[in-house]
Amino acid sequence: MVELITLILFFFALYVIVSLSLNLEFGYGGIPNFGKALSVLTGALVVGGILNRLLIWYFGIEGDFISASSLAAYRMTEIVSQNPLIGLGIFLFCVTMAVVAGAIAGALSILPSAKLKGDYLGVTLLAISEVVYLILFYNTEIVGGYYGVSVPDILAFVPGEYRVYAYTVLALICALLVYLFLEKLLNSPYGRILRGHRENEDLIKAFGRDVMKLRIKTMALGSAIAAIAGVVFVFYSSSVVVNAFNRVEWTFYPFLIVLLGGKGNNKGVVLGAFIFVLLKMLIDFYKFDIKYLLHLPFEAVWLQYIVFGILALLILCYKPEGILKEEPIYTPPIKSRLKTNP
């Protein structure tokens, strides 16, 4: 039971980070970022592709990338188990790199379509994300592809049986920081102009805003945040396996969460993430029981896809505003008006 709760909390934290970043782009800004998975993958790439190569070079390990990575990860894990500061240092280093790489990836991926309307924007973002995913998946030399590569255990100093809890706490801290950051950032004229862009881009163009710049900056920020989730995820699983960063899990599910919780409402998105992860983990955890109980002649994961697809359609149709509705942005001067002239 504790195991299940920890699992739920960990993935809750990850999905909070990614869905909040999507809420910034899509919920507030109206940018249909169907390439969300790309930014999470960027975080994984930073750890599996860059950190591993640095370690291989540092330790002077020879041989092919995948086996050299295993050895490097093993050696580094040994060091970290003696020296917690190095582990945390590596983590912070990777987060910083992921934020930079995520920002670059986000800005570049929207560049081709930054001037166009929503449909072209969504298609181009999805296509770029899919192609990068396919290349990283089939080419095992970049970051292990479908074989996967090991990465060091940055919390190796925590005794084995508590390590999962430590990772969960780490993930929850990251999620909390992201939440506080975005709440502060979006309850401002920036949040207001994003919503304006979502409602009518021509109008804000006519009122002096450079829509292209606004989109590029917002995508850079959103992707930088989501890349953090990628870093946390691969350290937790102590490996990078590219399949784990597919479009369903890291593009579609975040959209489902934002719609479920309430687009444009960060609290709603946190709530949405909780409900979603609870459902998903219960299905994952009890998949054999479900299969047995319902006499399914197939794996429960297919059922999960069908259920979440139907859920998304139902929300779109019957509750497009989500569980918690969007609220106006009340900056302090507006808030004081609420008292004087209600």
Partner: peptide
């Protein structure tokens, strides 16, 4: 519904079809 919402609907439909195809292949 806005065009963005319609696009999400086709993504959801795609996922449903994917689930059905996968389940059916095992059946």
């Amino acid at each position: 519904a806005s065009i963005e919402m319609l696009m999400i609907a086709t993504l959801a439909w795609d996922l449903i079809l994917f689930g059905i195809i996968g389940a059916y292949s095992e059946v």
